[in-house]
């Protein structure tokens, strides 16, 4: 069980939205995390990589900054096994490469622009994620 957190989750979501808007307003870019990672690990020129690297570093230090402000490190719980993290991770990597985006790029940036491709992609991955969780928890694990 995890606690239902509508207010903190909505607040966190609004911060995500604010960051997405600021990136468009400053650098003119979509805040799609899989795209940012993919370009960073490609043969793109250094000028295309530097701001992306800085963005990812900012994301990684976020828990530490939260710790410095609040005094407690955010807590997460990871139910999947190591094998599941590896298999799931590889599938995520393959999927976002072919699908040109993930929850942030399609689910937030694209959906907010009412992009048909992003809406179709988001509906598709939400459906397969739900089906996978159902299968793992109630068919195989149930």
């Amino acid at each position: 069980m995890t606690e239902f957190t509508p207010l903190t989750s909505a607040f966190g979501g609004m911060l995500i939205g604010l960051a997405v808007v600021l990136l468009m307003g400053s650098l003119g870019r979509i805040a799609g995390i899989s795209g940012i990672v993919g370009t960073l690990f490609s043969s793109a020129p250094a000028s295309e990589k530097s701001w992306r690297a800085a963005f990812l570093v900012g994301m990684i230090v976020a828990p530490t900054v939260l710790f410095l402000i609040t005094g407690t490190m955010p807590v997460i719980e990871v139910p999947p096994t190591t094998a599941m993290l590896v298999i799931g991770g590889v599938l995520v990597g393959i999927g976002v490469s072919f699908g040109n985006g993930c929850t942030s790029g399609h689910g937030v940036c694209g959906m907010a622009r009412l992009s048909g491709r992003s809406i179709a992609a988001t509906l598709t991955f939400m459906a397969t994620t739900a089906a996978t969780v159902y299968l793992l928890r109630h068919v195989i694990g149930g």
């Binding site: 995390i33 990871v78 976002v96 993930c102 929850t103 991955f125 089906a131 996978t132």
Partner: peptide, 17 residues
């Protein structure tokens, strides 16, 4: 691609973001 991403997300519980 989106379908495969969703399967991976459902197995690992992490998305890139």
């Amino acid at each position: 691609g989106a379908a495969v991403f969703g399967i991976g997300w459902g197995i690992a519980g992490f998305c890139p973001g």
